[in-house]
C-alpha cells in the first residue's frame, strides 16, 4: 500500500509538471484538431502559477511531503483562500467522476473556442472563442494537477455527445454558425456551472471545493459575455408549407368550382331523365 502511495505521488508530480507545461503550450497551439493533452514529464518538486483572467491560483506539489498546496486569489484581490492542503491518496469514485466530468467540459469548451476562432463570422464570437482557448486550458491545468495527485486517469477527449453537438454547430455557416455556437455554449456552460455548484457526491472534497471556487467565477463571466452578445427575438418562423401551392383561398375556390360542376352534372342528368 505504501509502494502504491509512492507511485501515486510520482505520477502526481509528473502530471503537475505536465499541466503547467500544457497550460503554456495550449494557447499557442494552432492545430484544428480536438484537444488532447498527454503527460510526459517527471520531476520531484513543481511550483507553478496559473492565472485565469480574474482568479489566480498558485500550486505547489511536493513529493517529499506528499501534499499539494493551493492558494486561490479571488477577483477582488482582498480575500485569499490559502493553504488548502490535500493529502495525495486515491480519489473516491465520486471525486474521480467529478474530476473527469470537469476535465471533459474543459476539453469541450477548448474545442468550441478553437472552432469559433476559425469559423465564426463575427468578431464578437471569434473573440469569445479566443477567451475559451485561453481560459479553459488554464482551468484544466489545475484539474489535471489535482487528478494526478489523486491518481485519477483523465480521458484525452471530450464526450462523444459533445463532439457530435459541435459537429452540428459546424454544419451551420456564417451568421447561423454564430447563433448556434452562442446558444450551445450558453447551454453547456450553464450545465457545467450547475454541475460545479452542485458538487454531486463530491461536494465536501477539498480538491472539489478548491476547483469549484476557481472555476465558478470564470464560468459566470463567460455566461455574462455570452449574454452580452445575444440578440432579441423578432421572428419565429416555426413551420414551412408547400411553395407554389394554391393557398387556402385558391384551394377553396377550386373546391367550390368542383362542387359547382358536380351540381351542374346532377341537374343535367335529372333534366335529361324527365325528357319524354
Amino acid at each position: 500500500m505504501a509502494g502504491r502511495g509512492r507511485g501515486t505521488r510520482l505520477i502526481a508530480v509528473a502530471g503537475a509538471a505536465l499541466v503547467l507545461a500544457a497550460a503554456a503550450a495550449c494557447s499557442d497551439d494552432e492545430g484544428a484538431a480536438r484537444p488532447t493533452i498527454s503527460p510526459s514529464v517527471t520531476t520531484a518538486d513543481v511550483t507553478g502559477t496559473t492565472t485565469v483572467e480574474t482568479t489566480t491560483v498558485d500550486t505547489t506539489v511536493t513529493e517529499a511531503t506528499g501534499t499539494t498546496t493551493v492558494t486561490t486569489t479571488p477577483p477582488d484581490g482582498t480575500t485569499v483562500t490559502a493553504g488548502t492542503t490535500v493529502q495525495m491518496d486515491d480519489a473516491p469514485p465520486d471525486v474521480e467522476a467529478w474530476l473527469i466530468t470537469v476535465h471533459q467540459q474543459n476539453l469541450a469548451r477548448l474545442a468550441a473556442g478553437r472552432s469559433a476562432e476559425s469559423v465564426a463570422a463575427s468578431g464578437d464570437v471569434r473573440a469569445l472563442g479566443g477567451r475559451w482557448v485561453t481560459d479553459y486550458p488554464a482551468l484544466d491545468a489545475e484539474v489535471r494537477a489535482r487528478a494526478a495527485a489523486r491518481g485519477v486517469a483523465l480521458p484525452d477527449t471530450p464526450t462523444p455527445g459533445s463532439d457530435a453537438d459541435l459537429d452540428a454547430v459546424e454544419r451551420e455557416s456564417g451568421d447561423g454558425y454564430d447563433a448556434a455556437w452562442t446558444a450551445r455554449e450558453t447551454g453547456d456552460i450553464s450545465t457545467y456551472l450547475a454541475f460545479v455548484e452542485d458538487g454531486g457526491g463530491a461536494a465536501q472534497d477539498p480538491d472539489v471545493v478548491a476547483l469549484a471556487a476557481m472555476t465558478r467565477p470564470v464560468l459566470r463571466e463567460h455566461l455574462d459575455l455570452l449574454a452580452g452578445i445575444r440578440r432579441p427575438v423578432e421572428a419565429v418562423p416555426a413551420g414551412e408549407g408547400p411553395v407554389g401551392g394554391p393557398g387556402r383561398v385558391g384551394a377553396v375556390a377550386v373546391a367550390a368550382v368542383g362542387a359547382a360542376l358536380v351540381l351542374v352534372a346532377g341537374v343535367g342528368a335529372a333534366v335529361a331523365r324527365r325528357r319524354p
Partner: peptide
C-alpha cells in the same frame, strides 16, 4: 438550445 440570427430570427 437555439440562438437568434443577425436579423432577429430564432
Amino acid at each position: 438550445p437555439v440562438g437568434v440570427t443577425r436579423d432577429g430570427v430564432l
